Amino acid sequence: MFPTLFILLYLGHLLADYPLQTDHQAAHKADQCATGWAANLTHAATHITTCAAALTLGALVLDDMTMSLPVAVAALLWVGATHAFIDRRWPVARWMKFARQQKWAQHGGAAHVDQTAHILALVLAALALAA
Score class of each variant (00 low, 15 high):
1 M>G: 09
4 T>W: 14
12 G>H: 01
13 H>E: 04
14 L>R: 10
15 L>A: 09
16 A>T: 09
18 Y>S: 07
20 L>D: 05
27 A>I: 05
29 K>S: 00
29 K>H: 01
31 D>H: 03
33 C>E: 02
33 C>T: 05
34 A>E: 09
38 A>C: 05
38 A>H: 07
40 N>R: 15
44 A>Q: 06
46 T>R: 14
47 H>W: 04
48 I>A: 13
49 T>R: 08
50 T>R: 11
54 A>Y: 08
54 A>P: 04
56 T>W: 07
57 L>I: 15
59 A>M: 13
60 L>K: 10
60 L>M: 08
60 L>D: 05
60 L>C: 13
63 D>L: 11
64 D>G: 15
65 M>D: 07
66 T>R: 14
66 T>Q: 14
67 M>G: 00
69 L>K: 07
69 L>C: 02
70 P>L: 02
71 V>E: 02
72 A>P: 07
76 L>G: 03
78 W>P: 08
78 W>L: 08
80 G>L: 01
80 G>N: 07
82 T>I: 14
84 A>M: 01
89 R>I: 12
90 W>H: 13
91 P>D: 07
91 P>T: 07
94 R>S: 15
95 W>N: 03
96 M>E: 02
98 F>R: 15
99 A>H: 05
102 Q>I: 13
104 W>N: 10
105 A>I: 03
105 A>P: 02
106 Q>S: 12
107 H>F: 11
109 G>T: 02
111 A>G: 08
112 H>E: 08
118 H>I: 10
118 H>V: 07
119 I>R: 11
120 L>H: 07
121 A>F: 08
122 L>Q: 08
124 L>R: 10
125 A>I: 00
125 A>F: 00
127 L>I: 10
131 A>S: 14
